[in-house]
Design a binder for these strands. Sequence first.
DNA 1: TACATTTTAGGTCATTTGACCAATTTATTG
DNA 2: CAATAAATTGGTCAAATGACCTAAAATGTA
Lengths: 188, 188
Amino acid sequence: MGKREEKIASIIQHTTRLLVHEGVGGLSMRRVADLAEIRLSNLQYYFKDREALLKATVAHYFEQCKTDVLQSLPSSDTKEIKLESLLRETLQKGLVLGDTNEQCAMFREIWALSTRNTSIAALVKEYYQHYCQWLVQLMASYTPQPQLIVSLLMPYVEGYSVMGQALPLTKEEVIDLLVKTVLVVIDQ
Amino acid sequence: MGKREEKIASIIQHTTRLLVHEGVGGLSMRRVADLAEIRLSNLQYYFKDREALLKATVAHYFEQCKTDVLQSLPSSDTKEIKLESLLRETLQKGLVLGDTNEQCAMFREIWALSTRNTSIAALVKEYYQHYCQWLVQLMASYTPQPQLIVSLLMPYVEGYSVMGQALPLTKEEVIDLLVKTVLVVIDQ
DNA sequence: TACATTTTAGGTCATTTGACCAATTTATTG
DNA sequence: CAATAAATTGGTCAAATGACCTAAAATGTA
C-alpha cells in the first residue's frame, strides 16, 4: 500500500469511527482531520468536501462487508455437510442484534443517510443484490429452490438485527424455528 | 386541544418533517422555529434544547405508530375469517419497501439515533415489544402457538423494509411464500 | 382592577463549520 | 541538478448554531 493509499485508509478509518460513535451529525471535516492528525486543508486535498468523504467511507464499508461475507460463507467445495448444518452455521453468524454491534451501528447511519442521498442508496441496494446472489449460489448446491430459501432468510436476518431483542424467543429458539421452517418448506 | 397543545403539535409536526427531509443533521432549533413560525426563544420555552425536542418528537412518532397499528389490526371479534386471510391481509399492509415510505424514513433516523441515545433506544425497544404483544394477542385466536408465528413474521416484515427491493421475488410471491410457510409450520 | 404566570420578542455571544487562499515543503521526473 | 507536480501548512471569512438574557405582551386569576 503506497503512502497515498495508507493515508486515505487512515482517513476513512477515522471517519468510520466518528460515524459509529457520534453519528452523521458529529461528522465534520475538522474532526476527521484532528483524529487523522492532519490539517484540515490536507484532508480537503484528498476529499474535496464532506460529501465526497462520506461517499468514499460508505463505499469502503460495503467493500469490507463483501470481504467478510465471502470469507465467512463455507466454500462450495465442502459439499459433504448437510443443508441443516449449513443453515445453522450461517444463521449463527448472521443473526446479530443491532444494538451490540459496531458494524450494525455503521449500517444504521448509512441506512438513514440513504434516505436523502441517492448515490448512497444505490450502494446499499447494490450490496444487497450481490449478497442475495452469493447466498443463492451457495444454496444452489443443496436445493433446487435456492431463491426461495434466500428470500425467506435474508429479510429475516436483517429484521432480526432491527427488532430481535424484542422477540419472545431466544436466538437458539429462533435458529431452531428457522431451520425447521426452511427444511419443511423445501420438502413441500 | 388547547392552544398550548396545538402549538406543541405544530412544533413536533414540523420537527418530524425536517427530520424526514433533511435528517438529524438538518435539525436545528432555529430551523424548527422558522418552520413553525415562532421565535427561537419561544421554541426554547416549550423545549429547552434540541435533545428534548428530539425525544418528544420520537415519542410522538411511536404514539402515532401505535394508533396506526391498533387501528389496522382486524378487531378480534371478527373471528369468522380464516387464518390465511388474516395473514394475507396483515402482510399486504405490513410489507413496505422502506425507500418509498415517509414513515420508514422517519424510522431510519430514529434507528440511527438510538445507537447513541439510550432513551430513544428504550422507546424503540418498548414499541417493538408492545407490537409483538398485540400481534401475539391477535394470532392467539387462530393458533395455539401465536408466539411462533409472530417470531417468524415480525423480523421478516422489518427486514423486508430494509432490503426487500433487492429480493428476487415480487411482493405477491413473498406473501404467498410466507403464508404457505406459516401454515405448514403450524401444522407440524 | 391588580397581580402573578405564561408566552412572545429581540438580541448578544462564543463556537463550530465549510469554503477558500497563499505559501511552503516534499516527491518525482526529465 | 532543475523543473514540475503532489502534498502539506497556516490562516481568513462568512454563515450557522446553541445557549443565554432581558423586557414586553398576553393571559389567567384573585
